[in-house]
Computed example of a mutant assay.
Amino acid sequence: MFRKDRFGTDVRSKFEEIVQELEDIYGRGKRFEHLKAGPRWHERRDWVMSITQNERMHRYEWSVAHGSKLKDAIKYIELRVQGIGEDVSFIALEYDFENRDKCLAEKAQNLASTL
Rank of each mutant, 00 (worst) to 15 (best):
A105I: 01
V81Y: 05
L111E: 12
S63W: 05
I51C: 10
G67V: 05
A73L: 10
R80I: 01
D101F: 15
G85Q: 10
S68I: 00
E86T: 08
R59I: 01
R100F: 09
L22V: 00
H42D: 14
R80T: 00
A65H: 07
R59D: 15
P39W: 08
F2T: 02
F32E: 05
R59L: 15
E94I: 00
Q109F: 08
L22D: 08
E61G: 02
Q20W: 03
S68E: 07
D46W: 09
L22H: 07
N54P: 03
I84P: 05
R100W: 10
S68A: 15
E55D: 04
V11T: 06
F15R: 06
Q53D: 07
Y95E: 05
W47M: 12
N110C: 00
H58K: 08
K102V: 11
E43M: 05
L70R: 01
F15Y: 14
Y26H: 04
R80P: 02
V19G: 03
Y60K: 00
H42K: 15
R3H: 12
R3T: 10
L93A: 06
D10P: 01
T9D: 09
C103D: 12
V48E: 04
Q82I: 12
A92P: 01
D72N: 14
A73Q: 09
G29K: 00
R44M: 08
L93T: 03
V11W: 06
H58E: 14
I77Q: 00
Q109Y: 09
A108W: 05
G8H: 10
Q109V: 04
F90N: 12
R56A: 13
L115G: 04
L79D: 07
D87S: 15
V11C: 06
L111T: 06
L70K: 02
D101H: 14
K107F: 14
D72S: 15
E86C: 09
F7P: 01
L111N: 07
I51N: 04
V19W: 02
N54L: 11
W41A: 07
L79N: 06
P39F: 08
M57F: 09
E17M: 01
E17K: 04
R59H: 13
I91K: 08
G83A: 09
H34T: 10
E94Y: 01
E21A: 11
R28V: 03
R80S: 13
G83T: 12
A65N: 08
K30D: 08
I74T: 14
F15Q: 06
Q53H: 04
G27F: 02
E17N: 02
D46E: 15
R45K: 15
I25E: 15
D24T: 06
E78F: 00
D46M: 11
